[in-house]
Design a protein around this nucleic acid. Structure first.
Lengths: 214, 214
DNA sequence: CGGTTAGTTGACCGACGTCAAATTAAGTGG
DNA sequence: CCACTTAATTTGACGTCGGTCAACTAACCG
């Protein structure tokens, strides 16, 4: 199975992993730095080998929307035309395989890579559209429940680490940080989930959680 | 200039128009019918020659989110993998040029068509991500203002037709129909826009409208 | 000209945001 | 490892934007 948080290409999509591994140059970033910025020229494509990344978009007055979270195996930086419309930042120390966009153009004959990029694009779009539905038409509780479900390995009661903080969750879900916190507390009070610290949780009752996710 | 409502490929993107015109079979649909349904197999790609279309996604309890509106020159039905995750319905009588997905696959050597489809995909994604930001982080007023701006030809005070009804606007913007109505009324009371009937409007003060759109 | 549907307006209410304070977690230098 | 500092999260009190319900009005159509 793919890790549920992963939204781009997974390592189990062999074409991608192989193509990026084969072509890519290794690169590392520490926690909390910008990989590329909003409105910067989109030159490189990043295959995430380890760590976690968020993509964010700012409004002029500072309101922030997180587009997506990425983890091991995801492909980052494809999402745009000539210019990035989201910035990407590391949530933890990360290592990548990086390939130049231009080299992709040149690689016209490379079907394996072409397919992988097409597939990654498709997934990115699918994700965005799914996200749309949730931002437009669901309650805070449904969003948080859905989010936790998307992160925890399905039907497992194992402890899961959240790579992002509460503010990141809030900006992803289109909620205030206090609302996220309250909702999580409420789920915990209902004995549907259980947190140990604010970065680790386990699902106690999947049926209840899925009911709440609509 | 491209028509601002158009969100996919425009007719002024010559590759698309030509490719679909060249390859497509003509097809027409009356107003208010489904072109393809959610979860149906995605077999055909539709180049819209005239009329208007919406794509919608339903939650099990009937809540609806509109993904996008399309008009003359847009390419519809690309957005998914093997299965459509949105349904598409006509807002008015429509005519299309239709091509089979499979014939696109076969057309590997057809760079013109490949480029056009890639570009359409890119735009679809761009649109979805822009929409995300608005659903997640803006007020009702900002959404409505932005929506009207996206429909009216920029800086023109010409009368514009809305191809969709208020419920469609509401489901696109993630608002209740009453909220859309109230907001429109308010903009009109402020003499920023002017409606003649509920399907035609003109922008009286672009500066003010853009200010409200954030 | 009734009848039907779509849109508007008003009254009310609740979910979620805001502001502030309390609590917990995470660093950091000794 | 501990005391201290600082940042992150939680909790509470309260206000508001936008949703809901209902009544009214305008557009549409045979």
């Amino acid at each position: 199975m793919t890790h549920a948080l992963s939204n781009g290409i997974e390592f189990n999509a062999p074409a991608m992993a192989l193509a990026v591994k084969r072509l890519g140059v290794r690169m590392t970033f520490p926690k909390g730095v910008e990989i590329f910025g909003q409105d910067e020229e989109a030159d490189l494509v990043y295959g995430l080998m380890s760590g976690a990344v968020r993509t964010t978009r700012m409004l002029s007055d500072g309101r922030r929307q997180i587009g997506n979270f990425y983890s091991r195996g995801d492909l980052i930086g494809l999402t745009t035309g000539p210019v990035h419309r989201f910035s990407a930042e590391t949530l933890s120390d990360c290592s990548f395989r990086v390939v130049k966009r231009s080299s992709i153009q040149l690689h016209g004959g490379d079907d394996e890579l072409d397919d992988a990029i097409w597939e990654a694009m498709r997934r990115e779009l699918e994700q965005a559209q799914e996200h749309l539905l949730f931002l437009g038409r669901t309650s805070a509780c449904e969003r948080v429940a859905r989010f936790l479900i998307s992160i925890a390995p399905r039907n497992s009661s194992a402890r899961v680490a959240l790579p992002m903080n509460r503010q990141d969750m809030a900006d992803y879900l289109g909620l205030a940080i206090e609302t996220v916190s309250r909702t999580v507390s409420h789920l915990q009070a209902s004995e549907i989930i259980e947190f140990s610290g604010c970065r680790y949780f386990r699902v106690l009752r999947w049926d209840a959680l899925e009911l709440l996710a609509a």
